[in-house]
Amino acid sequence: MAISQSLTTADIGIFRKATGQTRLDQVKTSASDRGFVIGVSLTGGHRRHIFHEHHASSHDFTENAIYIRDLAQAYTADLSNPFDFMLFEISPASLERIANEAELAGVTSLAAETASKDIVLANLARALIPALERPEEASALFVDQMTTAIGAYLVQRYGGRQAQTASRTASLSRAHEELAKSIILENLEGDVSVLDVAQACNLSRGYFIRAFRETTGVTPYQWLLGERIKRARDLLRSSNAPLAEVAIACGFADQSHFTRVFSAIVGATPGAWRRNI
């Protein structure tokens, strides 16, 4: 594999697999109880010849094409041409939990898809590429927030049931807002999951994310980034601490990580911003 990356979350396994080889082998997987695998093609040109019980079918994967496969069914396919896939694996128990949080209790499977295009899912998947490429910088809060969104989208789009209109306004009470913010601030490096914060507020992950965004105007991870940058500005303004120390004090993995995020949000590097003030 030219690329083989992975992240583990509470409910969804995240992988990126890519190869540049033109001639690929046949793949065979036995039936298992692992649940479902969802693939998102990041590039076009890959082709699969899939063998079914009584027939075979050929499929061309364009960019942003997806597949959904039930791992309870044995799978045999001839692969040809290079591929670059984001993959999500969801166990039956995780699918049930995700469906319950999305207010779609009773969804126990996802509809099979092969080489159909899904721009929404592809964009959600691509947002996780930096976390796979630099896992040491990946915030658990961000990854959990993204997988919650992906899980909810999958059960709503492919779970075979019509999503219900939200019956209550998604907003946090003042007490829950203060509690959530205090927990996030205590974990400025981002090593706290949405699940942890939501459970502290006695809310589901999906509802908590919607309520936090409705209440504050931003997602939990966006709020965390804002607080990191706010603390960084205070330290840059009030001290002569080296940038590497400021980075660690503000929850960044290192100075390089700090510089990239600060520059993207503020429009100047930390060093240049400090000199200008």
Rank of each mutant, 00 (worst) to 15 (best):
I3W: 03
Q5L: 08
G13L: 02
F15H: 14
R16D: 02
A18K: 13
T19C: 01
T22M: 09
L24A: 01
A31D: 07
A31S: 14
D33C: 00
I38R: 05
G39K: 04
R47T: 11
H52E: 12
E53V: 10
H55L: 04
H59E: 09
T62P: 00
E63N: 09
I66M: 11
Y67P: 03
I68R: 04
I68Q: 02
R69V: 01
D70F: 00
A72S: 15
A72F: 03
A72V: 04
P82Y: 08
F83I: 03
D84V: 02
F85A: 03
L87W: 04
E89I: 08
A93R: 14
L95N: 07
R97G: 03
A99D: 07
N100S: 13
E101G: 13
E101W: 06
L104F: 07
L104Q: 15
E113F: 02
S116I: 10
K117L: 12
L124Q: 11
A127L: 12
E136A: 15
E137G: 01
A140P: 00
F142K: 06
V143M: 06
M146N: 04
T147M: 09
I150R: 01
G151S: 02
L154V: 02
L154W: 06
R157A: 09
R157D: 02
G159H: 03
G160Y: 10
T169S: 12
A170S: 09
A175D: 14
E177K: 12
A180R: 00
K181T: 07
S182K: 08
N187K: 06
V194N: 05
D196N: 12
V197K: 11
A200F: 10
N202E: 14
R205K: 15
Y207C: 00
I209Q: 04
I209A: 04
F212T: 02
E214M: 10
E214D: 13
V218I: 09
V218Q: 14
G226W: 07
G226L: 08
R231Y: 12
R231C: 09
A241Q: 12
L243W: 01
I248N: 11
F262D: 02
I265C: 02
T269D: 05
P270Y: 06
R275A: 13
R275D: 11
